[in-house]
Nucleic acid binder design. Structure first.
Lengths: 235, 235
DNA sequence: TGCTTCGTTGAGCAAGTGTCCAACAAGCGG
DNA sequence: CCGCTTGTTGGACACTTGCTCAACGAAGCA
């Protein structure tokens, strides 16, 4: 292979690792696979990387951070806390997330056996939760959400989301991305004192509603419903 | 090693596999480890087992079914749907569940690469959800729960539980078994139209409350609360 | 042109993996 | 006592893994 600038070569290795990991899973990624992916030799990979554990941790971080930044960007460009919440959930469920989610499954399982991967997984997981905490706190400050404990509420919503996606990816359970979106949004409405449908109502366009910030919806008087409305999603 | 009856030997192999898998995880379990665990040779294992995939699937089923039957028994001996729900959640969170939960993590991750293990994981997962569906339907029939879609409600509750336990086991996140119990019970109350505290109120002893069936609590008029009460759990 | 630097090679090592199988021996009917 | 069935052995095979390292050769400079 052609001689390369060290930093470019290192990036190339991670990129190749990304491709291999997305194709066959993090736990089944080998040094030789990565070398073959970029048409090079195993020795070269180890010239830039100390251990397989560290390499897998870096590859995982590359993929996971990509998703995290996508979500962060969508959240940041949202006009309201409700819109930010929707953006958080919908970017977490975008098509193609399934193959990336396999990396999370591998990271969770391997965390007990690969220290660096475990530490990276833990760190990114907390970053992800922090984004959600930020949205909730913004919403509470704006008077749109009611939540006594944003930290634990974020863990509950994130865990529900992870658990549902897990069912779709690991087993191929009979519900869809849309179902998951509806259910998580519904849980968020109850968790944050929103009116049912505030996050799922069809009149709110999923992503872009530039004139929405001027009409802070109905959040001021959420004292209407008591039990969960069955919602209109057919499972 | 001493000669053994084939069915006893087979059981012994699975028992040894169980011990190894609980110690070092399903994905790190090898034929030689299992043979060494029972003081025997690798060849013997393969004399009773077709492939490693099948062996891991059987070991996983052994452990998972053990937990499932514990939960089933606790649910069956409950006097009311509410008590059954509490039993379902508390048996899913009993001490030592953490090491068994690692097997679930491994099964979910390996499901994509080991067909038999994947099929077993899927099957047991659905059995677990069925138990929950049964509880909900019983509660609805008894007029204690209100739930339009028991199937999807069970998936939501189970996913929340899995997601939260996952955070505790894979990462060592800062909430406890008690927090998870409180949160999942609270979610179940909202999901099933119960009054806040119906599942977590301290006057209900966690497991055994034999005189509770005569007083069907307050579930007949659940039209009181609208937003989530902050609950008393300090995260 | 020669020399140094350094990214790159790929064979090779030691330690694994699942799997197979010829040999062994314990129990048992004769 | 023998011979047969059959559970058991453990070495061996083919393969994969992470990792090393002496050798190579392209680029840059004098």
């Amino acid at each position: 292979m052609a001689r390369m600038d060290p930093v470019a070569r290192r990036a190339r290795i991670l990129e190749a690792g990304r491709a291999v990991a997305l194709r066959q899973g993090l736990a089944a990624t080998t040094v030789r696979d990565i070398a073959a992916e970029m048409g090079s030799s195993p020795g070269l990979v180890h010239h830039y990387v100390d251990s397989m554990d560290g390499l897998l941790a870096e590859v995982f971080e590359l993929v996971a951070r990509e998703g995290l930044e996508t979500t962060r960007a969508a959240v940041a460009s949202s006009g309201s806390p409700c819109e930010a919440l929707r953006a958080f959930f919908s970017t977490s469920l975008r098509p193609g997330h399934g193959t990336a989610f396999q990396l999370w499954l591998d990271a969770w399982a391997e965390a007990a056996r690969r220290p660096e991967l475990g530490a990276t997984s833990r760190r990114l997981n907390i970053e992800w939760q922090s984004v959600l905490v930020g949205i909730i706190e913004d919403g509470v400050a704006a008077g749109e959400f009611r939540c006594a404990e944003p930290e634990s509420a974020a863990w509950r919503l994130l865990s529900l989301l992870d658990g549902l996606v897990l069912q779709m990816v690991a087993h191929d359970i009979s519900f869809s991305d849309d179902d998951v979106m509806t259910w998580v949004a519904g849980s968020a409405e109850r968790e944050l004192g929103l009116a049912p449908g505030a996050l799922t109502h069809p009149d709110a366009v999923l992503r872009l509603a530039p004139d929405r910030s001027s009409t802070p919806s109905t959040s001021s008087t959420p004292a209407t419903s008591h039990t969960r409305s069955p919602s209109e999603a057919a499972s």
